[in-house]
Design a binder for these strands. Structure first.
Lengths: 193, 193
DNA sequence: AAAAAGCGTTGATATTTATCAACGCTTTTT
DNA sequence: AAAAAGCGTTGATAAATATCAACGCTTTTT
């Protein structure tokens, strides 16, 4: 199970981990299984763990005053799930993260992660690269949300995230795009012509 | 002029820079002045520099097929301006960055910055912290854009970014929020009641 | 096997937001 | 000093999207 994580890390750094480093990493990350619908993080709690998804699918969302869920992130294999704001600032999270499918995670606390980064320089490099990618992805999504029509935005989503289309139902995708399921249904009908 | 940058860096790291490090930093960052309306980055160009704003105000925006500008970032003193996607991937930028006021910058190439980070560990720490803040801010903005009504979104913007309200005209704020200037005008009228 | 929950679609209607055009005022340019 | 450009506002109208309700189909739960 930890091998997925080691492979992932090795793919994102310039020179491979030593076997001592691999041992440290295996020791630091704790396996965790979640059944479908189980929470990884509940609104109001401080996000204690970062989870690397070995298998499964999860979603992160907020719930507004009317009880409507707004999906802010979707996660599948090889994604890191956490509410960074809560985790870094130690504030109660505004989000829920739960398992959409039965999911296997490797979890670590932020403190342990920082500790590990102190011992393994390559991890610092990896985190920086992850942060960069993350920043780029966020930038793109924000620009798309602000600039595009719902139709174009959906089109780009299909292009860029075909995996998500297969793993999550349409009303989840709609929410991720900031539109209702009915609107998405109509957009798709339009696009078929 | 470089002192603003040094002060900024010292504020964001745990132990202050040594004087040798300060010398290195001063040597690496090059001063640059931009007159109002001058480009720092034009669409289609690769973003070569990251700029630290010592004085002034800038904006980053894309231009859609209809010629409409969509503001993706606003920058004032102590902000870092760049298109990270272009800068990291070395791809032509989809954005323009220009000076909204006469602006003084300290600029550095990505290669030089990485070199500097190799020599000054504190900078790596700082960049990580900046990335974290950035990730948090992006998350908030995205969530607001997806979840809130235009009115609530504007309200939160005023709360969180009063500086921008003072420095940029309303049609720029509207574009930043993803709405038209007329809609913003009407929202404000509503809110006054 | 029956019941319940989840999902996607459609129709009718309401609400929100955009678009287009015009105006007064201020600031900048000539 | 005159002209032009920039800015915010308002009105009339159009377009996009949300809301509410209902339906058939599939999957999950009992």
């Amino acid at each position: 199970m930890h091998n997925n994580l080691l492979a992932y890390i090795n793919q994102h750094i310039s020179s491979p981990l030593t076997s001592e480093e691999e041992v440290l990493i295996k020791a630091a990350f704790q396996p965790k299984k979640l059944r479908k619908k189980q929470y990884f993080l509940q609104e109001g709690a401080v996000c204690k763990y970062v989870g690397f998804i070995v298998k499964g699918a999860m979603r992160q969302y907020s719930v507004d005053e009317k009880g409507v869920e707004h999906i802010v992130h979707l996660y599948i294999e090889n994604y890191w799930a956490a509410d960074r704001e809560s985790s870094i600032m130690l504030t109660p999270s505004k989000y829920n993260i739960d398992a959409w499918e039965d999911t296997e995670l490797l979890i670590i606390t932020r403190a342990e992660m920082l500790d590990l980064m102190g011992k393994i320089p390559a991890l610092v490099e990896m985190i920086r690269i992850m942060d960069e990618r993350n920043a780029i992805a966020n930038q793109r999504r924000l620009n798309a949300t602000i600039s595009n029509t719902a139709e174009k935005n959906y089109g780009e989503f299909v292009e860029n995230h075909p995996q998500f289309i297969q793993r999550f139902p349409q009303h989840i995708i709609a929410s991720y795009l900031g539109i209702t399921k009915e609107t998405l249904s109509r957009i798709k009908k339009q696009a078929m012509k």
